[in-house]
Nucleic acid binder design. Structure first.
Length: 560
DNA sequence: ATAGGGTTAG
């Protein structure tokens, strides 16, 4: 072995000289050396020097190795690529994929350069080759062009596990969870092996949809494929179960990998508790994290503070804000303060919350005003809502939720004229109310509802069941807050009524509904009674958190 | 020889 005769590693300059002597006898070795040196930032300049002083004219492999070495600097990589085109060497799919990767690292990704590269690769008949095609899929995904990414994927005549993974992850990144999951299913149907990449992409999508069934299906698949021990896969599992409301399953996966859990894993578990408003478990886990010498980051504190906010623990939230900067060196951000505002608003300390918003070390953004306004909704503070709503609409006149909240507050306060003004203003500015949508998973199938819709094939049964539930709830003491018939068929009610229909959800199992907006106050009240009527748990995940209705109570303690 | 895909928050 010639390498065995190399001088001792203690003298890197001599090792270097020796390696070059070895390489000069073989072009392949020389090109490999460029790559080897480019792997570490310390030797990166050596890699480029090697390329410039090649003892032979650079081949397409040398060019590709050099482009790849420059991937952290897209402009330089691009310039090098252009000099390649001026010479006799033609780019291959390897060159294109290296350059595309580099272009995707720039923020924002260099789209126009990539488009030119794409057209060049079409001309050279490279775009349908696996490496170039996959690089295109990945590039368009990172450039937020999911449609182009899918087209590049469809163009590939042979789809291997890497391009499937790129497409699945790309759709997950671009908030196309249904698309990502059907790609995952298609991949399995085509007999293409799943990998840690495709599985984590699918799990991220299942997490996005909060679909328990899909999380379980992908989990089972990961176990069979032997991918569960992978840290990223396990972390994605913790997150998917957490988001789907199965905190105990999330914890089981978490405990199984505990010695290896990294910061991201701990944060995923923390935010699972936060979404349930389970601040005791969140804080307990946080302490365990410290015992294991994992240093918390801004994200960890955001999870803990979200838990405090959801639980309405003002004092706790104040302590954490103070502590994170003083004891952990993590400066609180506006988002952290937003949680404290949320905690105060939830428990009805609206003046304190307003004072905090005006005096905190950050300029409040629309999200903060929205938090405060939603506190005004819960506590029916119409006067404060007027000023808060104005500030919010100054910052974001297109925020449909602001108009809706204001109108609801005025309605509850009997100020019909003010309410009418809000609706008029909304219409004049061309703002459309985001429709409430709810969905429920039944036997692996997702059924979606919008308020008042009769699109479902069992609509008649669903409405009949709803009336029945209503009557029974009333015998237990349920009173409608507003004599407003519109509430009767809110999307979340339709979803629950469907879940109660014969055998839709197995006996004794909780009904799990996901809603795109905040759950309506009257529906919230109604579900407390329905849970008693049907004698099982109703779980609703709205935009903010989980609500679990059991024995006439909700885990949010009516703070939300 | 060179080259493509991953987890928390929004």
């Amino acid at each position: 072995m010639p390498v065995a005769t190399a001088p001792a590693a203690a003298d890197p300059a001599r090792v270097h000289a020796h390696l070059i002597k070895l390489a000069s006898v073989d072009r392949a070795l020389y090109n490999q050396l460029i790559t080897l040196y480019s792997r570490s930032p310390v030797t990166l300049t050596d890699a480029l020097r090697l390329f410039r002083r090649l003892p032979f004219p650079p081949t397409h492999v040398s060019w590709t190795a050099a482009v790849s070495a420059l991937s952290a600097d897209p402009d330089a990589a691009l310039r090098l690529f252009l000099s390649m085109l001026r010479g006799p060497s033609r780019p291959t799919q390897a060159t294109l994929s290296a350059l595309l990767k580099s272009l995707s690292l720039s923020s924002p990704p260099l789209l126009s350069a990539a488009l030119q590269l794409h057209s060049l690769s079409l001309k050279l008949a490279l775009s349908r080759l696996p490496f170039a095609g996959t690089a295109l899929v990945a590039f368009y995904s990172k450039a937020r062009r999911p449609y182009d990414a899918l087209k590049a994927f469809d163009d590939l005549p042979y789809k291997d596990e890497v391009c499937y993974a790129a497409a699945i992850v790309g759709m997950a990144q671009n908030h196309r969870p249904n698309c990502a999951l059907s790609l995952f299913a298609a991949m399995r149907a085509a007999g293409v092996a799943s990998t840690v990449y495709s599985v984590s992409g699918a799990l991220r999508s299942a997490a996005h949809l909060a679909t328990l069934e899909q999380s379980r299906v992908v989990h089972a698949h990961a176990v069979v494929a032997g991918l569960e021990p992978d840290l990223v896969v396990s972390t994605a599992l913790v997150d998917a179960y957490g988001k789907s409301g199965l905190v105990s399953d999330a914890r089981m996966v978490f405990d199984a990998l505990l010695p290896d859990a990294n910061l991201v894993t701990w944060n995923a578990m923390l935010s699972a508790y936060a979404q349930q408003g389970d601040s005791e478990s969140a804080v307990k886990l946080f302490d365990e994290m410290l015992e294991r010498k994992i240093a918390p980051d801004d994200f960890s504190f955001l999870a803990v503070l979200t838990a405090c906010s959801n639980a309405g623990f003002v004092g706790e939230a104040e302590r954490w804000i103070d502590l994170m900067g003083s004891s952990f060196g993590v400066a609180p951000s506006l988002e952290h303060y937003n949680c404290l505002v949320g905690a105060m608003a939830r428990v009805g300390r609206l003046e304190d919350a307003e004072c905090l918003v005006l005096t905190m070390p950050f300029e409040p953004d629309a999200a903060v005003w929205r938090t405060l306004l939603s506190g005004c909704v819960v506590h029916r503070a119409a006067d404060l809502a007027t000023t808060v709503g104005r500030r919010l609409l100054e910052l974001d006149p297109q925020d449909d939720s602001a108009y809706v909240m204001l109108a609801n507050i005025y309605l509850a306060a009997g100020r019909k004229d003010d309410m009418a003004k809000v609706w008029t203003e909304m219409r004049d500015r061309g703002v459309k109310k985001e429709g409430g949508r709810s969905w429920i998973e039944v036997r692996g199938e997702v059924h979606a509802f919008i308020a008042g819709d009769r699109m479902h094939k069992h609509a008649t049964d669903i409405y009949a069941k709803l009336v029945e539930l209503m009557e029974e709830a009333k015998t237990l003491g349920y009173e409608e807050v507003n004599e407003n018939e519109g509430l009767w068929y809110h999307s979340e009610r339709l979803a629950v009524a469907f879940g109660v229909l014969n055998g839709a959800v197995p006996e004794g199992k909780a009904l799990r509904v996901v809603k795109n907006l905040r759950i309506c106050g009257d529906c919230h009240e109604f579900f407390k009674y329905v849970a008693r009527v049907i004698q099982r748990e109703i779980v609703v995940r709205d935009v903010n958190r989980y609500h679990r209705f059991q024995r006439g109570c909700c885990t949010c303690k009516d703070y939300w």
